[in-house]
Design a protein around this nucleic acid. Structure first.
Lengths: 226, 226
DNA sequence: CGAATAGTGTCTATGAGACAGTATTGA
DNA sequence: TCAATACTGTCTCATAGACACTATTCG
């Protein structure tokens, strides 16, 4: 009878999260700089990932631990993108890379990491080549979901206004929403928003109503928003 | 400086595919019976999965190898569902389970495995408890995609008729499509189908035109089919 | 010709989008 | 009162769905 030791192949499992945030109406991701003395890919940038350990209870707790220790960030929403495998590590160990995308609102203190504007990614050289693919996949998943869901709520706090939410959609879709009335109608019909008694005064014009997000459910529309 | 050996945690990575097929207008999945002498979970059923080896080039080649050696099946379409991790193995090794769903057409010879009607799953006890979750997830992903894409084409061969395709959609959605004209229009508008010169004669009634599937692209509708 | 299913033409009701209007504020 | 943005009401046009019609085959 086979014993497990003989049968098993040893592998390294790494978690690679793409952490998104909206800063000044521009989409940013979190990158970590690798020290000059780092054993692997020194003096380059990477996703704020890490290796899964046998002490982790699950992948979910592993990603929490990795993000917490590496960057101190706490995520509002996270979702697994997928896994790839191969001899991608320069030390030629067989590695499984499990990638995630996560959304946070940017009012947090971040340590040892930097918010990088996605349009300025050319200035940041990534040591692990497959991180480029993961970032592309995360962007695709994000913009795709924005089309037909209320996912962008997680870029804002619990209190929001409809013009602010519309702006977030416009930034993520890279396109102006021509008509606000349809947008408003669709959003309110989800039942996720409760109008409060407060208004947000932002200039010499009519203030916008502040809504409270009822539940953190994500509503999926049966038709694309644009 | 840290060395890799000290830093690494050893893990087992298993691939767990849910292989779907339509047999007699009923959805089936492929299950494997574990021998009485099997070290782990003897005398139970499992998904036709296996352990990733360092000789595998990638996860894609690993799933091909596993399915080929365990069941001999060749898939038309496969898609990764996600990964979970934890001490799920009875030998209490930390295991990553990477699950897939795959579609095949059932005209193949299968070895060491059985097509099981999803409605009769109660008769089959699964040794690995997390396989129940994976099967649920695969069913969800499948029925969800059927709503807004041409994925069901992969249950049929390269040549098909629109009434046959409609029947596949109805089985997968568990619902009659009331009006065929809208369904036909939507499907043809994708541009995936080319009408051939042949017809399929099936009874004492007008024959249906046979279409050829142009490319194996999956079209995503911007609105749900039903 | 009748039964049965394949395929088409047309009408209608729904709903998204365009557009123009009103509302509310600060200066 | 003007400028600026928030918000609402209405019209139109596209389109999905309902329905009825024609087409083609076998027996």
């Amino acid at each position: 009878m086979k014993t497990l030791e003989k049968q098993v192949d040893k592998m390294v499992v790494s978690i690679d999260p793409v952490v998104f945030s909206l800063i000044n109406d521009k989409l940013h991701i979190l990158l970590v700089y690798r020290d000059k003395n780092d054993e692997v890919h020194p003096d380059t940038w990477t996703l704020p990932g890490g290796v899964v350990k046998v002490d982790d209870q699950s992948l979910e707790s592993a990603i929490e631990r990795v993000l917490e220790t590496k960057t101190g960030v706490k995520v509002n929403y996270s979702e697994q993108l997928g896994s790839t495998g191969g001899a991608i590590d320069p030390r030629s160990v067989w590695t499984i890379s499990i990638s995630y995308m996560a959304l946070v609102d940017p009012q947090q203190t971040i340590k040892n990491a930097k918010w990088v504007d996605l349009d300025l990614m050319n200035d940041y050289y990534l040591g692990f080549k497959h991180h480029y693919d993961i970032i592309e996949k995360a962007k695709d998943r994000l913009t795709n979901k924005v089309n037909y869901s209320t996912l962008p709520i997680h870029f804002l706090g619990e209190k929001l206004t409809l013009p602010k939410l519309q702006k977030v959609y416009e930034v993520l879709l890279g396109e102006k929403i021509k008509d606000k009335s349809t947008f408003r109608e669709k959003m309110l019909k989800t039942g996720l928003f409760i109008q409060t008694d407060d208004k947000l005064h932002e200039g010499a014009h009519r203030p916008s109503w502040i809504y409270k997000v009822e539940k953190q459910d994500i509503h999926h529309f049966s038709k694309n928003i644009i």
